[in-house]
Design a protein around this nucleic acid. Sequence first.
DNA 1: TTGTAGGCGTTATCAG
DNA 2: CTGATAACGCCTACAA
Lengths: 336, 336
Amino acid sequence: MDSTVTIKDVAALAGVSVGTTSRVLSGNPSTSPAARERVHAAVAELGYRPDARARSLRSARSQTVGLLISDVRNPFFADVAHGAEQAALRSSYVTLLANANEDPKQQDTYLESFLTQRVDGIIIAPQGEESAHLRALATTVPLVFVDRTVDGFEVPSVTSDNALGIDQAVAHLADRGHTRIGYIGGPRSISTGRARHDAFVRAVARHRLDTDPGLITSGDFRSASGAVAAERLLSGAQPPTALLAADSPMAVGALGALRRRGLRIGSDVDLVAFDDIEWFSELDPPLTVVSHDAQAMGSTAMRLLLDVIEGRTPESVVLPTRLVVRESSGGARRQA
Amino acid sequence: MDSTVTIKDVAALAGVSVGTTSRVLSGNPSTSPAARERVHAAVAELGYRPDARARSLRSARSQTVGLLISDVRNPFFADVAHGAEQAALRSSYVTLLANANEDPKQQDTYLESFLTQRVDGIIIAPQGEESAHLRALATTVPLVFVDRTVDGFEVPSVTSDNALGIDQAVAHLADRGHTRIGYIGGPRSISTGRARHDAFVRAVARHRLDTDPGLITSGDFRSASGAVAAERLLSGAQPPTALLAADSPMAVGALGALRRRGLRIGSDVDLVAFDDIEWFSELDPPLTVVSHDAQAMGSTAMRLLLDVIEGRTPESVVLPTRLVVRESSGGARRQA
DNA sequence: TTGTAGGCGTTATCAG
DNA sequence: CTGATAACGCCTACAA
């Protein structure tokens, strides 16, 4: 039940010194073909696996990066994680994926753990505002923000063009003749929550739509809160004719609320979601979305992080969004 | 940009030896209150964080477990991961989450990496059949299977009662008067694929339903394959009146195929999915599912793994399934 | 090209 | 209760 075959065993079996063995294994050119062959044979025979801990202890590089996302169960972040992980793998880094679960305390727990594991760098979709913890982190280890940012941090980030996305959605709904759009936003403590909210307010004004503050609600980026918010919007005296949800889980919640009220999506009420999720196109009706490429976001973040780790100072990246019109806001509207 | 404050610095500042410092830090009772206080003060002042690598190198325990799931983007596995992770945290273990992406090669890459990181144990939802790699693994490090198993391995596992679940679904559909049920199964190379398939065949026979082999298709547990399979089933000469999908992504694929054919779910064709996903109840119509508790599966697997790590020999666990009837198979059926 | 030896940060042993 | 000191497994000068 234990392997404990060390480099010494390999050296002994190969009949060379540990130094030579180490050199062969790390691809040091100063090795004879004969030595290489014998070492590799010994490695294979013993099933030797170098100890990453010892190696990184000695060489001060762990070839490990931490990825802290806010909610694994949100498909958007699952895609981000997937993209980041694949990119890391290509550069032979191992990704430690941790799930903050939209909880600042768990976020801190895992950051602590990353530090303790001496990861070479961290990608994080930060939870809250300015935290002393995060502040300290930024000066300790290479750091990159993904999807979200925190004000006042000089940290490279990969984000979506939130303003553009919201704009595309509002313009589209305005085109369809809506004047009362209900907005289901995220928390103001999260940068994407703020950016999307502010963009919505501006877009509504620009398109001269109804600025009734009762049309603006907010949730916590999770599905239950989307249902609650939609319910609130729809139960008003003068309900909106279209709903815009600031992320996909809340859109799903809204979906349920609409169905429970017997409202037909795409005719009674239009629905648009920020975030595209694979199965949104399989729904009935398929959902109109502001799409951004989650996997690209993840892989880009990883690229930036590796840049930082290697001493470069990469620029932040803002990824474009794209409006994908589907039937949830594409069919014939029913008369009010 | 580097912390590099070691236990020596702490010891120096506290005015005690590293030995004492180490004892204080690891909660060894043989320490004086005075020493404890000074050490803790020094730790706080220096912002010292023990080096997990060095610690585990010396103590032969990394307090780290590897969790290898087959597809992060499948919400079922995201839930499993979440459950496992939370359980680990409670026992102060760190979880390395890796994503095999339904690809045996990536599975091996990550297993290799786990071994190299000297994790204390591994939870895996295995991909393929008997692999030499896995075989070697089982004798090297504590191992637990989750969701899936591999034949011929004496490894504790946590699985669902697949036969029960399929039975519940088929019985329900038979009750509703269906005689031709189309089955969208998973690959035979995966244990759940086999178990659910075999259970389906048995259940169909037991309920004296149509055993037409053309009613049985299979995909790869991902959504695109579900759409293809549904399409094939529905385009036959005598299409089924109900569809049973062996996992949720494939059910989503089937959903899209049905919509594209203009078939109404729950009246034209009934649809039942194995796996419950939070938002399945928000769909229109809400989906009937064979539900099993993914989070419980994850946390149970972690419990078993920690048992193995601590030298116990836990029994495998089979979790029950539960049929949740919703409108996708709960409304009035349309006459054929 | 190869071997030897010191040290990365910790914990464990063994005297005091 | 505390302080030295020897490992843990590996890499990397330095010498040969």
